[in-house]
């Protein structure tokens, strides 16, 4: 088990003929992900990287049975691409694209409310179940198959966290980047629920950052429901209020969304929170040792 993606996931890439789409499609393939096709309007009927290209997602699904789509189309067209994938019956839509207008995402979210499609992103690195399926842009070499789930609002900081686990001999069940935009698909609580139910996952690392209330909501949910130990880091303690720190969602407004408040909420929920980002791996080790799960988290 793992969450959301595994070795039977069939992946298509929307925007496969663009520079990013093509590069990452080939990276996903060489990791062993079953990439079964791609979609670029106007380029249907062709072939790229040994897989067919379709004009529409519906055609791609009909021909290949794809159930996961990874989206690389430019920001101005990304919302359209997400809706198209959902309408074509894709179970998991992962949007890597950065810079989508906020109101476009509001419309998408409103539409997806009544759909079965699970949406991850946008502005995220994607999702990887090590050794089985990489539906995203993360560097594969740092990931090792194992028992710890990772969920994060960041891209490279997720890699940092995963790497710290791997060098400490701790593998990952699935690593999920939920993205840095204020209006997003899956949130911390959604992913925590999945990890909580996943028999392979023994513990979770949560990487949050300033802005919004996702971490506070996660803390509340953990306190009431989480059966597994959680370690966390919140980025942005040094950020000044009112300034946007790269991610559209990373902004402290009127004293809300501070790192301090998030750390307090998580600590209160029994999460082991590290104050500095170099100790994320150590925090997880501390959390699983306290739960008597350390040996079971080690690779091999």
């Amino acid at each position: 088990m793992s969450i959301l993606v595994n070795k039977s996931s069939k992946v298509i890439v929307q925007g496969i003929t663009g520079a990013h789409g093509q590069f990452h499609a080939s990276q996903m393939m060489s990791y062993g992900t079953k990439v079964v096709g791609g979609v670029t309007p106007g380029k249907g009927g062709g072939e790229i990287l040994g897989v067919p290209v379709f004009d529409t997602v519906a055609e791609a699904v009909a021909a290949t049975g794809a159930n996961v789509s990874v989206i690389f189309v430019p920001a101005a067209f990304a919302a359209d691409g997400i809706l198209e994938a959902a309408d074509a019956g894709i179970s998991l839509v992962v949007c890597i694209t950065e810079g989508i207008p906020v109101q476009d995402m509001m419309r998408v979210k409103g539409y997806l409310k009544d759909k079965k499609t699970v949406f991850l992103g946008a502005n995220c690195p994607g999702i990887i179940t090590p050794g089985e399926c990489k539906a995203g842009i993360m560097p594969p070499a740092i990931h090792k198959k194992g028992r710890v789930g990772v969920v994060s609002r960041s891209g490279t900081l997720t890699y940092e966290a995963v790497n710290q686990l791997t060098v400490r001999g701790i593998g990952q069940s699935t690593a999920v980047g939920i993205g840095g935009d204020p209006i997003k698909g899956l949130g911390f609580v959604d992913v925590l629920k999945l990890f909580n139910e996943d028999s392979e996952t023994l513990a979770v690392v949560l990487i949050g950052e300033i802005g919004g209330s996702g971490e506070e909501d996660a803390a509340e949910w953990i306190k009431a429901n989480m059966k597994k130990p959680v370690a966390a880091f919140i980025a942005g303690a040094a950020a000044p209020p009112g300034k946007r720190m790269g991610h559209a969602g990373a902004i402290i407004m009127g004293g809300k969304g501070t790192a301090c408040g998030k750390v307090a909420a998580l600590t209160d929920a029994g999460v082991v929170v590290t104050e500095t980002p170099d100790k994320i791996g150590d925090a997880l080790v501390e959390a699983v040792k306290a739960a008597g799960l350390y040996e079971r988290c080690l690779i091999g």
């Binding site: 994060s152 609002r153 960041s154 891209g155 490279t156 900081l157 997720t158 940092e160 840095g180 990487i207 950052e209 300033i210 880091f233 980025a235 942005g236 303690a237 040094a238 950020a239 720190m245 790269g246 991610h247 990373a250 790192a259 104050e275 500095t276 980002p277 170099d278």
Partner: peptide, 16 residues
């Protein structure tokens, strides 16, 4: 730094 989250984390650790 590359990436907004890691860039924030880098500021944090310098301060720490």
């Amino acid at each position: 730094v590359n990436g907004a989250g890691l860039a924030m984390a880098t500021m944090d650790i310098i301060k720490a």
